[in-house]
């Protein structure tokens, strides 16, 4: 077996007194896309946000168990969260460009990583916009405000912003939930391309989407991992009855 990117073992997570994750074990492999599916409140987003420690921002949360990035425990005291987040990028459910120009949106992440020369910035911004399949639509108006873009364009801009800093992993939290089918198709296509360079973890409500874009799928229910396997197996021949009921639309 190839070296896993993330190795999660017996992970438990609490919001205050409420436990959100119960003994979760998942392994995420490089240059593959892993989908987390399950009904609302099943803990899939919580798990995703553990992977770059965004849950740290929420008061009174507690985590137990092991999450390792290439063998290094993420919650170890010596871990620099800022460095971690530079290596594990994230795209949010609702597109959240900064109220700045398109150029500055992508330049922001590069600048905090110390890329300051005009030429370097321009090159890397163009490259990431091309990868996000947005370049042709915005190349003539890089200095316009990002807020003027359409919803789908804004989300692709957020993807471009996340990949511009060349993270190793890209976490996507329901990236298409606020988009129309055309924009969704574009982003799904994008995910297929991005897989070549990045390891992708995607949370989705949409089971067809999981089937289309992911190599592995984890099904969660009420904070527990029910089944984790190759996507084709989960959708065609699940081992667990609950998984079958969910992916065939009998509940959830």
């Amino acid at each position: 077996m190839d070296n896993p990117v993330f190795h999660i073992e017996k992970l438990n997570f609490w919001y205050g007194a409420k436990q959100a994750l119960f003994d979760v074990d998942v392994t995420i492999r490089p240059n593959q896309s892993t989908a987390f599916i399950g009904p609302s409140g099943c803990g899939k987003t919580t798990l995703l946000r553990c992977l770059n420690r965004m849950n740290d921002l929420i008061e009174r949360t507690r985590v137990e168990g092991k999450i390792a990035l290439h063998g290094q425990g993420l919650y170890a005291p010596e871990v620099d969260v800022i460095e971690l987040r530079k290596r594990v990028g994230m795209v949010f459910q609702k597109s959240n460009p900064f109220p700045k120009s398109i150029f500055d949106n992508i330049a922001y992440g590069l600048r905090i990583q110390g890329v300051n020369s005009k030429n370097d910035l321009a090159d890397r911004i163009e490259a990431s916009l091309r990868k996000a399949a947005l370049w042709d639509e915005v190349k003539d108006r890089l200095n316009d405000s990002a807020m003027a873009l359409s919803g789908g364009q804004q989300q692709r801009l957020c993807i471009a912003r996340a990949i511009a800093v060349e993270p190793e992993v890209l976490l996507m939290d329901e990236p298409c939930s606020a988009l129309d089918p055309v924009a969704t198709a574009k982003i799904e296509e994008l995910i297929q391309d991005l897989k070549k360079e990045f390891t992708i973890v995607i949370v989705t409500h949409n089971m067809q989407q999981a089937a289309r874009v992911s190599d592995h799928t984890a099904f969660f229910y009420l904070g527990k991992l029910v089944e984790f396997d190759v996507t084709t197996k989960i959708f065609t021949n699940p081992a667990n009855k609950q998984t079958e009921d969910y992916v065939t639309g009998r509940f959830g």
């Binding site: 770059n52 965004m54 921002l57 800022i82 460095e83 971690l84 987040r85 530079k86 290596r87 990028g89 994230m90 949010f92 609702k94 959240n96 460009p97 900064f98 109220p99 922001y108 992440g109 905090i112 990583q113 957020c158 912003r161 996340a162 800093v165």
Partner: peptide
């Protein structure tokens, strides 16, 4: 969402606040 986006890019909290 703005500060979350910046934090997820690996910005330090004071960078998020200031920039």
């Amino acid at each position: 969402s703005y500060s979350q986006a910046a934090l997820a890019l690996g910005a330090a909290p004071w960078q998020v606040a200031w920039q």
